[in-house]
Amino acid sequence: MSTKSDFKDSRPISSFFLRKPKVRLISLLSLPMTWIVGVYIVSLFLLLITAFWNVDPFTSRVSPGFNLENFIMVFTVPAYIATSIRTLFIALSVTAICVLLAVPLGIYMAKIAKPWLRNILAVAITLPLWAGYLVKIIAMRLVFTEEGFFNWLMAPLGIRGPGFSIPIVILTLTYLWFPYMALPVYTAIRQIPPNLFDASSDMGAKGFTTVYRVVIPLIVPAIIAGSVFTFSLSLGDYLAARFTGGATQMIGSIIAANINLNPPVAAAYSMIPIAFVVIYLMVARRTGSLERM
């Protein structure tokens, strides 16, 4: 009897929560829910609602109201449509290149490379993450200027870089986001049991067939996970285009240009990348890979 009450008194908080499961649940969830709803969703909602608001034509002051003009602009101004398509193309290209590079690299690192080399490669992949984002973009800019490193290196071969343009933007974004694809892909390949490769080999499959029939199907969820990063991060980026794209405009460029001058248009236009990402996730879901993530 006395032992029981001692026990009760020694952990008053724990026993209180044990007796009140609802209070327990609320106190567990309140902090993350405040964060998600209060900070994340509300601020996003406030941003998006301005898409319907009016802007004073002279002072560019925003006032609450309701009009669809900003959306009509987004879908009718040719420059905006062209920019949406261009940005989608860039984001898809970046994602495709990241996949093409990450899969062979992942297979090599996980299954072929010696442990010391594997560690060096793992560090090499994550190393760019240690540098600032803007630093990396400016570095790419310097590499590809007319008198920059690339043209200097390629001069003996008679090759000249394309100058600041869409290909350089794709290259820069690939460089920026590659770790987000490479790491999940590498981890997924490492988890494939070695005997699957032996079995595949026993049944007469050559190396490439094994990759195609065994490895790829097993790492699709990892590729989807990585591509969500590379795709959505590329969609939202505009500094890469500003510094390495020459006159290239992306969705982010237009949003950035309007954020001070015409916030409603910026808000309306920011629906486009959201729509792209939602469609992308829905397609990914239909393939069933989200469930296996």
């Binding site: 004073d56 560019s60 420059a79 905006y80 920019t83 240009a257």
Partner: peptide, 14 residues
Amino acid sequence: SFQEWTNAWATVKG
């Protein structure tokens, strides 16, 4: 107005 300039400017760069 400047608002029209802003909107017009957005169409320049395509």
